[in-house]
């Protein structure tokens, strides 16, 4: 595997192998000496065109634990604001020795273009492109579900419900593809204007209300972050209405099964899409997701840069 751009690039078996590898690597994270020599001498660049301190740090620590050299290139405050193209920036980074470029970009398809247009020969890892995909997030979510549900290799038979703004969510898209690839049944629920046409083609069942979706007794409820900046520009968006219909509030928390896992990609808007009680509930796996993010990103970096599995 040279790049990780989209879940579409994975098969069921290659996805399972990545999760297995991440599971092994997570044990490294428990040990006192928290690094492996696997990527010694290799340079990995974080090329971020959007602010995302959490994802950037997660990749940075993951690369360092594999002994890679890490460069953080903040594209928002550099030459790119003077009009340098993505192509030129990536070529410059490669000339400086980057073996892998981890890219976060506001435009859908940016990572795909870096990987496939002959601009650079470095490995490209998609850390989120527009509304398209965020594959490492989906992998860490799958890993979390697998752990919480003790489900064996894949996620066969597990019912996952994704709630919120599906339209603008790359997390939702990657998860729909990956979780259904791994055998889970994926449903989505969200405001009508935020559930895009044709989403069923990605393998998800669509529910019109949160409560109707909860009647199906999902094993996992994944709450999406409300993108407040975007919503504040939208005259038709009402916070009060959103909370009433789509928040995982105390009442809905009470409807969840004892074993239902609560997930959120973070950062959370407490009191908006997720209530404080739900965020603090013992069924919440939010911190486990963060921890698994590190292991998954180590596994992905290792896979794309060594061309082999860690085991």
């Amino acid at each position: 595997m040279k790049h990780l751009i989209s879940i579409r690039d994975l098969t069921r078996d290659s996805a399972v192998a990545l999760l297995d590898s991440a599971q092994q690597l997570s044990q490294v994270n428990q040990r006192t000496i928290k690094s492996l020599p696997a990527l010694r001498g290799k340079t990995v660049v974080n090329l971020f065109y959007e602010n995302s301190t959490r994802t950037r740090i997660s990749f940075e620590i993951a690369a360092k634990r594999l002994s890679a050299d890490v460069i953080n290139f903040d594209a928002q405050s550099s030459s790119t604001s003077k009009g340098e193209s993505l192509k030129d920036t990536a070529q410059t980074l490669e000339a400086l020795g980057a073996a892998a470029i981890i890219v976060r970009h506001p435009m859908s398809g940016a990572a795909h273009s870096l990987a496939n247009r002959g601009w650079v020969s470095a490995s490209i890892i998609n850390a989120g492109d527009g509304r398209h995909e965020h594959p490492t997030q989906a992998l860490l979510d799958a890993m979390t579900i697998r752990q919480q549900k003790n489900s064996g290799d894949d996620l066969a038979g597990i019912k996952v419900l994704v709630v919120g703004d599906i339209e603008h969510s790359r997390v939702a898209r990657s998860n729909m593809l990956l979780l259904s690839l791994l055998g889970a049944t994926v449903s989505v629920a969200g405001p009508g204007t935020l559930v895009p046409e044709g989403i069923e083609a990605m393998g998800a069942k669509v529910y019109k209300t949160f409560d109707e979706a909860l009647d199906e007794k999902p094993d996992v409820v994944m709450m999406l972050r409300v993108q407040l900046e975007r919503m504040q520009k939208d005259d038709t968006f009402s916070t009060r209405e959103y909370i009433a219909n789509w928040s995982l509030d105390q009442t809905r928390l009470g409807l969840l099964g004892k074993e239902t896992v609560i997930m959120h990609p973070g950062p959370m808007n407490r009191g908006l899409e997720i209530s404080n009680q739900a965020a603090n509930d013992p069924r919440s796996a939010v911190l486990r997701q963060v921890e698994n993010g590190l292991a998954v990103r180590m596994a992905v970096l290792h896979r794309v840069l060594s061309g082999e599995d860690s085991n």
Partner: peptide, 13 residues
């Protein structure tokens, strides 16, 4: 074009 492909690709239809 608006539709399932645009939805998956995250491009405005």
């Amino acid at each position: 074009n608006q539709g399932a492909v645009a939805t998956e690709l995250g491009l405005t239809g």
